[in-house]
Amino acid sequence: MQTSEMKLDGNAIAGLLGEIFAVEMTSAQGTCASCGAVNEVGRVDVYIHAPGTVVRCPDCEQVLMRIVRGRGRYWLDLTGVRCLELAED
């Protein structure tokens, strides 16, 4: 197989992403990109009285996620989460 044939486009992960984002997320384990603490998504700090939803690490208070909803769209920033560990359904 040539190298050029090994590179696919994003449609190749449609099924994989569909499996991942369909699972129950509150039991997922998230690693904070800032301090490295691992916390269950259901146990992190959440601020909803804001222009969007802000999710913070309960250990260091840094932002894990920002979620904005408007005009029929979502904007999701996960740069504060280094890794999400999810159980298969």
Binding site: P51, G52, V68, R73
Partner: peptide, 23 residues
């Protein structure tokens, strides 16, 4: 900034209802 990098309008003029990206 904090909100402008995640969906909210770069400028945010209320009289032109610049709430979100693309407004």
């Amino acid at each position: 900034g904090f909100w402008e990098s995640n969906g909210y309008h770069l400028y945010g003029d209320p009289w032109r209802e610049q709430r979100y990206w693309g407004d």
